[in-house]
Nucleic acid binder design. Structure first.
Lengths: 246, 246
DNA sequence: CCAAAAGTGTTAAAGTTACACCCATGC
DNA sequence: GCATGGGTGTAACTTTAACACTTTTGG
């Protein structure tokens, strides 16, 4: 435990930022195009360096604030995993402490330092169950359980920087696993949402879209009813619900 | 993303090492007594520094090898979480990448560098559902879900170094959560085990010990039967099973 | 034949799914 | 009144839990 001999890696905060397009009902993921090596001109997940006096959680929120100019007080961020393979970065050693953040909107993006572009990409679920980006020739997938575990080293990162392909695979898998007991992904719908929208999101990450008559019955512990809010459409105004986390 | 300005924290690997006493049927946890500041003379989880050319997973296995003189080829280690609060270490900034390891035996311990003592402590479950160490006046607990989430900063570490109390709480919670779909905790029983022992472990981490007649029926996907192995006891020899992960 | 462990059979209870239909409300 | 979203009722089906009892096998 001799401090002086310890060579230290860089600490990267990698943020998988999810959102929802209220018009098209699409799931969105934020990618930036890197302006510098390594992986210059590759699409990548937004990242920042961890500062010496902040927690990784705080750094994740700072990243959202800096990149998106968003200063919402109640942005939810949760730890995904930490990636430490020495070969994950081709130059200096860098660990990735990765988080997921759920935003109810897609603010206009300006690339900011380190990036030449920043875009919200649409998530598409394919018949096979794999996920891909619309308008980006890249399938980052979700594999069957038995393939998943030992797949890490086989993932050829042809389209995303570093191991961000793998990080997205883990992120998607996590959301699917938590869908029925802690569906924090619903936070992309904002602080309140309708059952219809919630069922739509469940349909994307779950096997099928749940039956409307059973959905509330099966998830009453997660959903707190709020007042109904009227819309400018014909039909009964949708009732709003709020996600209860534990 | 200016590299040169980045001040780097230390990277600690913290390992929650679980084991099982085949004689007494007790769950064991490995603690060491620190020989140096900070937290000199406090009990703590085994730790090591991450080296510049190894993954955190490799460092976890190296820690087991170094501390225990164990060179089993098939030790299972899994990531628990990463702890990054700037105040978690009173002197230099140090992140903890924490892992769990499951050992089928408790090798004789020699404290090794950085420690004046090393002991296997017995885990006790109290009526309240909280866990404590036998022979160590310390309740590290598992809290109800609603308390659990925001409890991190309230945990007074009176008896364990750093935030190791909290790390153990998270570790125990993780094992409980995974019990019914990926009970890797069973690996403390060794590469093969009997249904009786598996039910015993389920009884400690679950609500109650499961009924023998239902146990195999409900967990067939996790348990692969091996040949029966005869004992030197009266009665039908116990059949051995192996844990299937995924 | 006794003890220990595994396994079977059966029923009750609880949870989930499917589907037909009713209700509420703004335009 | 009609479109829309929510809600009710109910039966079929699946999963889990409880418990009594049988089978296996070494000493």
């Amino acid at each position: 435990m001799t401090h002086n001999l310890v060579e230290k890696p860089f600490i990267t905060i990698t943020n998988v930022i999810w959102s929802f397009d209220a018009q098209t009902h699409d799931i969105k993921l934020l990618l930036i195009k890197r302006s510098d090596n390594p992986f210059k001109d590759f699409w990548a997940l937004p990242e920042t360096w961890l500062r010496i006096n902040e927690s990784a959680h705080d750094a994740t929120l700072r990243l959202v604030k800096e990149k998106l100019g968003l200063d919402l007080p109640d942005v939810h961020a949760e730890q995904l995993a930490t990636f430490t393979d020495p070969s994950r970065s081709p130059e200096e050693r860098a660990l990735s402490l990765s988080y997921m953040t759920f935003l109810p909107q897609q603010p206009l993006l300006n690339p900011g330092p380190g990036a030449t572009d920043a875009q919200w990409f649409t998530l598409q679920k394919q018949k096979s169950g794999l996920f891909r980006f619309k308008n980006l020739d890249f399938v980052f997938t979700t594999l069957a359980d038995d393939d998943y575990i030992n797949h890490q080293n086989q993932v050829a990162d042809k389209h995303l920087a570093f191991d961000h392909n793998w990080i997205l695979t883990v992120a998607t898998k996590r959301i699917m696993n938590k869908l029925n007991y802690q569906p924090t992904i619903l936070l992309i719908l904002g602080p309140s949402f309708t059952l219809k929208m919630a069922r739509h999101v469940f349909g994307i990450f779950g096997k099928t879209e749940p039956d409307n008559s059973n959905f509330l019955r099966n998830h009453q512990d997660l959903l707190q009813p709020l007042g109904a809010i009227s819309q400018n459409k014909p039909g009964r105004p949708a009732k709003q619900y709020r996600l209860l986390i534990n």
